[in-house]
Each structure stands twice: as C-alpha cells, then as structure tokens.
Write a protein that binds this DNA or RNA. Structure first.
Lengths: 338, 338
DNA sequence: TTGAAAGCGCTAACAG
DNA sequence: CTGTTAGCGCTTTCAA
C-alpha cells in the first residue's frame, strides 16, 4: 500500500502539504500552484489512495452511516435500503448495511458493531420491542432515525406509515360490501404497525355501528408462513368467515395458498385485502385490493432527516413522521349474498 | 467517548493488559484471573466500546467486506446481499453494501471507496463491461469474487448461472409446442448472462434443425420498461410472432403488460416464458413457465469462496463457478395450431 | 505558503 | 504474567 508519506517524498514536499493538497484543502491553505500540481501528479502516478481508516481516526469523521434492517431480501426493506444508500452516497457518506434476520439479539450486535466503527448516524428498522440499545445510541449523541416498526412510547425520531387510516379504509370497503365476519391475519404482535392497523380495523367497525370479534384475530408474524397457517386455521375453525385482511404482502401470498389448498376461489368464496402491493399484483388471478405503503418515501424521508441532522448538528424539530398509504381498489372483494 | 486508556487507568493496569483482556487475548497471554475480571468489570461499568477504526488501523484487519450491486431493490440482488451479509457476519465480518444504480462510474467509485476503507475482500455484481477498476483490486491483492454479470475473457473468480442450458430448455419447450416465430426480449447486450442465454436459444433451434431469426431479438435491458417496449414493438412489427422469451422477471412483467395493452391473452394468443421467478408466479392469471436462478446459492457460493480465500490466504483453485438453473413448466405455453 | 511535531485509539513487539 | 515503547497513516495545531 502506498502512503501519503511516500507521495510527499516523491513530490519533494512535507506530508502536511501533501495531505492538504490531497484532501482538497489546497485553496484554503493557499498552496502554490506548482506544488499542488506536483503533488497531484505524483499521487496519481503512484496510484495513491488515502487510507480512510487513518483519516477517520484522526479527523473524527468516519463518513459512515449505518442501516439495520430485519431482512434485506424483503422488497420492502430493500427499497428502503436503496433510498438510503443513494441519498447517503450523494452526500458523501457510505452505508454499512446489517441484516438483523428478524432477530433482536442480532440487531443489538449490529448496532454495537456500527457504533464501534464510528458510524456518524444510524437508521434502524427495529425488529420488535427492545429499545435499550437504541437509547444507548442516542445517549452517545449519534443521530438516529427509526423506520417502520417504531416505538411510540419513546422519544426517538421516527418515520412510519399512516397505518390506522389505511386499515380503516380497507375494512370499510369490506363492510360496505356486506362483510361482517372478517378475519385479520396479523403481523408481529406488539409492533406499532400491527397494533395501529388493528386499531384502524376496529375503528371501522365501531364507526359502522358494528362490533368486531377479536376471536378472528390470528397469526403471529408478517411472514408468508404465518399468513398461510393463520388463514388455513381460521377458515377451518370459523367457516362462516367471509373475508380476510392480510397485514403484509407475504401474508397475502400465504392466504392465497391457503385458499387454494381448501379448494376455494377468490373472491367468490372468500374476499381478501392486504397491506403492501408488489409489481405483479395486477396480473394475479384475482388482483388484490391493497393498501400500499410508499416505501420509497419512507426511506427517502428517513435519509433526509438523518442527513439534515448531520449537516446542521441540531436534533430535528419534528420527531414523528407519517407517510400516507395509498389504497387501491381491485377485484378481491365480493359482495356478500344475503 | 471512553477509551482503552481510561479503562486501564480505572482498573489500575497498563493499556496493553487492558487491550489483551478486551480483545480476547487474555488466555493467550495468561493474564491473571483477578486482573482480567477487574478489567472486564471496569470496561463494562464504563460502557467501553473499542474504536474499530483505531483497531483496524493498527492491526491491519478492517473486518470489512465490500459488496457492490447494480440495484439493491431488485429482489435478485437483495437475495444475494442477504446471503453475503449473513455468511460474512457469521465469520466476524461486516459488509459495506454499495448500490451502483446500474451505472459503471458509480460502480467504479464504490469500489474505490471500499478499497479506501480497507475492505478485506470484495464481491461485485458488475454493471456491464468495464473491468479495469476490478483488475486494480486484484493487483492490490484484495480477494475479489464476481457474481452474475461476470467477464469470461478475464481471469477473475466468478459465480454465475448455467444460462445457456436453461435458455435452451425453455426454447425447446416452445419448439416442441410448435412455436417457430419466437421473439427474444433481451437484457443488457454484451453481458454474459444475456449473451449465453441467446446462445442457448440459438442452440435449441439449431439442434431442432431450425433456424432462428435474429430479427426477433429485441430490447436492450433487464428492466420492466425494456420488456414492455420491446414486446409491444415486436408484436406490432411481426404479428406472426407466437411466443416471447423474457430474460428477466421484470421484463416478463413488461411483456405481460404489453400483451394486455394489445388486448391479447396469455397463452392463447401468445406464449411467454421467462427467466427468474417470484413468489407470486403461481397465482398469476397465467402462471409462467420459467427458468429460475438459484439466487441463494449464487450469493452463498460467492460468500463461501471469498471467506475461504480470506481464511486460507490462497487464491481459489476453481475460478469459474456455475450454478444450475431450475426450469419449471407452468401454463404459459400454448400449442400452436396448424 | 510550507514544515515539524503531536497524536487520534489501539495493538504488538520487546523486555522483564 | 505485565508494562514500556513504538508506531498504523493520516490531519492539524503551531511555528516559521
């Protein structure tokens, strides 16, 4: 590896001068045109590449942003990762991405790791309900933004969707089509998106002067597996169920498989609406009415807030950011026959 | 930030002793039980977290692996990213992911950045045809593995799918159903996957004693847009076309949209087969016969090779790794009526 | 406009 | 078993 010292020697200047030229401070220090050119020429000729580790250690600026997601292969988080990395890169930061594999302990390790590497800011999509490690980040004055499964009780800066109103819209569409026995395939209990969506569903019932039966709440995660098993179980246990609400795209896929397994068809035998859509949704046998989160905006907003905090050094004034959800009516709701 | 020196002072030992205890070398140096306990206790009490930058600078081990992908929001690359990050984490490495946005210049910058941060190894899914920056990596003795769009002319370590044989199988299925006018919605020209798939298609024709018309080669990228436009154009220009081969999932979606736009139906009016599948493929109006790459294995293999090279210090014996592609017959091929 | 010297926080000889 | 002494490669006072 070729070092600054070697470049300096080769150009016949001191390391300080070489450093100033090569770190873009030439103008500020009013380095002579010739000296500057010489250093640059020599650096290029030698293929000099500054050691970012040494630079960061000395300057106290790592230029690294950390991103922790529960599953990078999930299109939802992948889209967030894309927004964050591109925004960060545009502002001269690199992004260290960690996949917590939906596991709180891995998430905690990842955050620690990121802090050890002197990340200047963190964006975390938390797995669940543990937040001490995140408080530790804040206490070390490292800017932190939480996305998606945020904790409302705490005072973190957060970006999440308007879960309740979307869930309400979806439910109202179902109720208006005559549905009353609506099963909810829930995601990870205790998480804010899950909780708020369920509240939205209940609100829809309430405002329609109906009462929703909590026995129709099934499932335990945002996964396809949970969706499949929960759908299968509830359709067997309560065959009078006329509609299903899936709280994620993978769950809706699981539900579709369950429906198929039972030899039923969508939407004649049972209606299905879901959170989140995906590119192929319009080409499904039965295109799903869905509430789709604006993932790009979630990621973009989180990145923008973090970057702004990094730039200004001030904690953001607005702490809780909500991104609207778009409900699209397709063909997966059938009218209930009397 | 609390440093090693402070911990050492607080525990009443020298920094070296503190370092040895806190970097897991206590046993090797046969540090006394009491000293060790004291250091650990103090470190924990003070909330000491070693500065990975300083550690890396000194020890010459950054513990960082770099991954560069053209688009992290593309499920294909997201899946690779997941395999790589989890495998790397299991072996004590962190992964810096960069999104090159399908742009060669960004890719080059990312690689440079990763090298500057002293990444110990790189996995790159190259955008296209530029490879000098990659040769620079090798010349600096940093292990490098290329995935997917590899360069065969060069001597890099590569992992990619068995494109040709899969393309051939897909084409033969079409030919056996009586198709002769088969249009190919190609991906990025000049890339290995694209080239080999086209070769496979031609081989199928050749072995069937037929000649494939190169005029039916359309499109210019692996994107939905290219798929849509190319499909639309060719169906208008050559209405006698009876089948389409899409070289990626997004392109197949584009093709489905084009078919819909023209008021045609799948597969009666036109057949469609595609590379890569996705979770919802079985629930499409017309489930697509597809050749699906084993993305997990691609990522897993790349990670394993890199990690092994890092472990042993030896360049891998086998340079070109090929992962089989699974062809699944569904319902998107109709027999051609005489 | 440039250089000398100090040191970021840690690890690794070397010495006891 | 433990401490002392040098740096890793860079930036940044301070001084000229």
């Amino acid at each position: 590896m070729i070092t600054l010292k070697e470049v300096a020697e080769s150009a016949g200047v001191s390391v300080s001068t070489a450093s100033r030229v090569l770190s873009g401070q030439a103008a500020a220090y009013r380095i002579g045109k010739v000296t500057q050119a010489a250093v640059e020429q020599r650096a290029k000729a030698l293929g000099f590449q500054a050691n970012a580790l040494a630079r960061s250690l000395r300057s106290k600026r790592s230029g690294i942003l950390g991103l922790v997601v529960p599953d990078i292969s999930n299109p939802f988080f992948a889209a967030i990762a894309r927004q964050v990395t591109t925004a960060a890169n545009q502002h001269g930061y690199s992004v260290l991405i960690a996949d917590s594999c939906e596991t709180s302990t891995i998430e905690q390790d990842s955050v620690k790791q990121l802090m050890a590497r002197q990340a200047e800011g963190l964006i975390v999509c938390p797995v669940g309900n543990v937040s001490e490690h995140l408080r530790a980040v804040e206490s070390k004055k490292v800017p932190l933004v939480l996305v998606d499964r945020v904790f409302m009780a705490e005072s973190f800066t957060t970006v999440t969707s308007e879960h309740a109103s979307a869930a309400k819209q979806l439910t109202i569409a179902l109720i208006e089509a005559g549905h009353r026995k609506i099963a909810v395939l829930q995601g990870l209990p205790g998480t804010l998106p899950n909780t708020e969506r369920i509240e939205g569903i209940q609100a829809a019932f309430c405002e329609s002067g109906l009462r929703w039966n909590p026995q129709l709440l099934v499932g335990d995660n945002f996964t396809e597996k949970s969706g499949f098993e929960a759908a299968l179980a509830i359709m067997k246990a309560k065959p009078t169920t006329t509609a299903l609400i899936a709280l994620s795209a993978p769950q809706s896929l699981g539900a579709m498989k369950a429906i198929q397994r039972l030899g039923l068809s969508l939407p004649q035998d049972i209606s299905l609406v879901a959170f989140d859509d995906h590119p192929f949704i319009d080409h499904l046998v039965c295109p799903l009415t869905s509430a789709s989160q604006d993932v790009e905006r979630l990621g973009e907003t989180a990145a923008a807030i973090l970057l702004e905090q990094l730039r200004s050094g001030k904690r953001p004034a607005k702490r809780e950011h909500r991104i609207p959800i778009q409900v699209t009516h397709r063909k997966s709701i059938a009218r209930v026959k009397k």
